[in-house]
Design a protein around this nucleic acid. Sequence first.
DNA 1: ATAATATTTAGATATTTGTCTAAATATGTA
DNA 2: TACATATTTAGACAAATATCTAAATATTAT
Lengths: 85, 85
Amino acid sequence: MNTFFKALNDPTRREILELLNDKDLTAGEIADKFEMSKPSISHHLDLLKQAKLVVSIREGQFMKYSINATVFDGVVMWLMQFKKN
Amino acid sequence: MNTFFKALNDPTRREILELLNDKDLTAGEIADKFEMSKPSISHHLDLLKQAKLVVSIREGQFMKYSINATVFDGVVMWLMQFKKN
DNA sequence: ATAATATTTAGATATTTGTCTAAATATGTA
DNA sequence: TACATATTTAGACAAATATCTAAATATTAT
């Protein structure tokens, strides 16, 4: 739960998730969407990976990132407990 | 979305939410559940209030805190977009 | 083997965050 | 009014975080 909310607690990382929800992207393609250095984006991707919100596989020189949808279940559950009815 | 994830990104604050989900509590009653100074708890309660996750009303000398369940809807929605099917 | 491209790692730095103690404010009671 | 209790505000400080540049690593192509 900790790594999850930590990962989500940043607008850049949430935006990365939204991009990846549309389609898989390489680290470089992701970086191109932001006005931020590649190392910074790499760091954000690392935090998302630690939270298991994304996974990456190497494709030649590129690293392809994709969403790991299954992880959201647990958190949605946790949040639902607070909903009325 | 920002204040929400910021508020959730702390184990103490998440635990406060779980306590309040059970029943309304005063600031002092909440503080008693933690090994932490009252001012620190007060600060956590403030962040939860900023995120509108809780509301508080004065009852005499006491401040009674309760969960604001409606706010969870938006975030659950946001998270659901990432779920397959 | 060398060079080019893609990405990550390392180290530095400013900002934000969580915690504390001391002081201030608000309410209730003798 | 004066005192006791409940809570918040203010200010300080250490730890965590987001960002950068420079350097290292991995892969591909000449």
